[in-house]
Design a protein around this nucleic acid. Structure first.
Lengths: 245, 245
DNA sequence: CGATATTTTGATTCATATCAAGGTGGGTGG
DNA sequence: CCACCCACCTTGATATGAATCAAAATATCG
């Protein structure tokens, strides 16, 4: 196994060649530490870098005119973040640390170079970005068409399931370093209502809470409640061309 | 100008070489007609094709367990749709026609081939898919953190602005072939409430309605109300490598 | 240990859903 | 060409889930 976080993630989808691994590792040449609560990048900032998360959790969020906030996505090690700077010269959303950690910044030109030299990786990255868009579709339906309890359930499941992919940590138990206000900003609810709904989820035996550690007790029922679909389980890379010699 | 709808769209972002144009045109070899109301593809269907929309409007939507529906996105000529079949062997969402039209299906392997032969186009397609993800982020914030009137305003603006990009039709006036129920399913509201809010938008002099033709009367105030950001105006392709010889 | 952030709880209000009933227009078949 | 039908829009009355306001309880941090 390579020491590249990103290569490790991608190898879950596809067996990589040594040349591909090396090219990916090059994206992680530089390192930058961050601290819990730190704002890594603010929306509107000029930005021509993207980041690979090596360690720690982040979230991306939009700040609206009236001071409201929408959390878009929670990010884990192995995630590629800040990708909107590929399309715009500046950050479309803010990026804030949920825990201490490390990320690896690289210039968007390095991405173009990667696409030039490794078209199979380019296709894979496009494929993964489509899978992530589908996850976003599910979130949209969650906010648009389900009630508070289902939205919270869906958020918790998404976090647990994606956390599980990277293999670290237990199956159903995660320390989620988010306040109830954060959860509200991710689900479109107030912290007060998040509190009440999580109490009900606990009363109904679906989850357990102590501190900000959340344990999924009955994943099946939670999946039903949320209408959750695990998209990551169904990713299909079988059609990709053979690696270049 | 080439007769490829997709090349025309992409040339709004970047001057294409003849070789690139030819490669894009090849994606539109096949044609398929569709009729208003027709379901082009249903969620869960096996799918290894994507589509370029040549003519007409479509929408993608999720159907939830309880019969509710979330409309994800309205699609116009020049759009690349059905991209989730790149990541999965089947359709993650349904695709339904809002009007009669024509689309061009092609196999996902053709995409891999394009990425192999034209890395600059690969980078451009990745870039555009990031811009579309950002538009999705805005929609998430709209549903999660704004009220009914703002959501409807944002939807109307998004439709008008994206429609304008392709240059067909007038500046502010569009015939929107959606029922109020459709608008509700796109904004996470009921058709009854859509009706009341659109009446207010009309009363306040922001829009005009007759039949399903909607005219934006005061785009500035509508933008303020919705907190709308025109992301398409800010796409930056200046950093892409020079075209291959 | 005090200070500050977060969670919890209760009372009240509000935006939007739900239910129900007409109204309108356009398309179709007799 | 008319009459009916069906999909869609409109309007009113009522219900409800979540927001808001306020304050106390608890955890966390320096």
């Amino acid at each position: 196994m390579s020491n590249s976080c990103f290569a490790t993630r991608l190898s879950h989808f596809l067996a990589l060649t040594p040349a591909e691994e090396a090219a990916l590792a090059r994206l992680e040449d530089k390192e930058r530490q961050f601290e819990r609560g730190e704002c890594i990048r603010h929306q509107g900032d000029p930005a021509d870098e993207l980041f690979i998360v090596r360690k720690g959790w982040l979230y991306s969020h939009l700040e609206l005119d009236d001071g409201k906030r929408q959390i878009l996505r929670i990010n884990f090690p192995g995630d590629l973040v800040g990708t909107s700077s590929v399309a715009f010269g500046n950050a479309s959303h803010s990026l804030t640390a949920l825990s201490d950690g490390v990320l690896c910044p690289f210039d968007r030109r390095a991405l173009a170079e990667l696409f030039e030299q490794h078209s199979r990786l380019a296709t894979l990255l496009f494929l993964i970005s489509q899978a992530e868009r589908v996850a976003m579709d599910d979130r949209l339906a969650s906010l648009g068409r389900t009630d508070a309890k289902a939205r919270i359930a869906a958020l918790l499941l998404d976090i647990v399931v994606r956390h599980r992919i990277m293999g670290d940590g237990d199956l159903a138990e995660v320390e989620i370093p988010m306040t109830q206000e954060d959860i509200g900003d991710a689900t479109g609810l107030t912290s007060v209502h998040v509190n009440r709904m999580m109490k009900e989820l606990k009363r109904d035996g679906l989850i357990l809470r102590e501190r900000n550690r959340v344990t999924i007790l009955d994943e099946g029922r939670l999946v039903d409640l949320a209408g959750y679909i695990n998209r990551y389980a169904a990713v299909d890379t079988s059609w990709l061309p053979a690696p270049e010699a």
